[in-house]
């Protein structure tokens, strides 16, 4: 028997393992959400133990995989910044008005140290509530946005 996933009436994901045993309330977690989101996904039990590990998602059969991806999409929140419309000040803390792939929003940047450089020109901006905003490629932003961002780097 292969591993299967189900969603119950309370909206929780349940894992049915190889022995047919059912584990309700599992949570999918990516091992490298930033550097290699496509590889390594674990299913964790509610008390924080690893129940299953997939090197790649295609190890799962289609229906379960769809459920898993759906659950990941619900849990993962990292808006991608498309443009920066303005900042309240060039010294921190300051408020940023940004346009993201999930709509326009405003957040507070507490300090310049909350902008983390990842490889390949990617940036990760953490706001005062711990939400991460991703800048996929700084060079691809429009000029005004780039100029604003550059002041903080």
């Amino acid at each position: 028997m292969t591993i299967r996933l189900e969603r119950d009436a309370h909206g929780q994901l349940a894992l049915i393992d190889r022995d047919g045993q059912r584990h309700p309330g599992v949570l999918p977690v990516r091992a490298f959400p930033l550097s290699a989101p496509g590889e390594g996904v674990a299913l964790m039990s509610t008390d924080g133990h690893e129940l299953a590990w997939f090197d790649r998602l295609d190890e799962l059969e289609a229906a379960s995989r769809a459920l898993l991806e759906d659950e990941l999409a619900r849990r993962e929140f990292m808006p991608q910044v498309r443009a920066i419309s303005g900042v309240s000040s060039f010294s921190t803390p300051c408020e940023w008005d940004v346009l993201t792939d999930r709509g326009a929003t405003r957040f507070t940047l507490r300090s310049e140290d909350d902008i983390r450089r990842l490889v390949g020109g990617r940036l990760l901006v953490t706001d005062s509530h711990g939400i991460h905003y991703e800048v996929v490629d700084m060079k691809k932003l429009d000029r005004p946005s780039r100029r604003i961002l550059d002041r903080f780097l």
């Binding site: 309370h10 909206g11 849990r75 929140f77 706001d127 509530h129 939400i131 991460h132």
Partner: peptide
């Protein structure tokens, strides 16, 4: 809550009603 997003889910005894 996870990754900066909070979720409130309303349940009755049998179902999840809304989030």
């Amino acid at each position: 809550d996870h990754a900066g997003v909070g979720t409130l889910a309303l349940h009755d005894a049998h179902h999840r009603l809304a989030t």
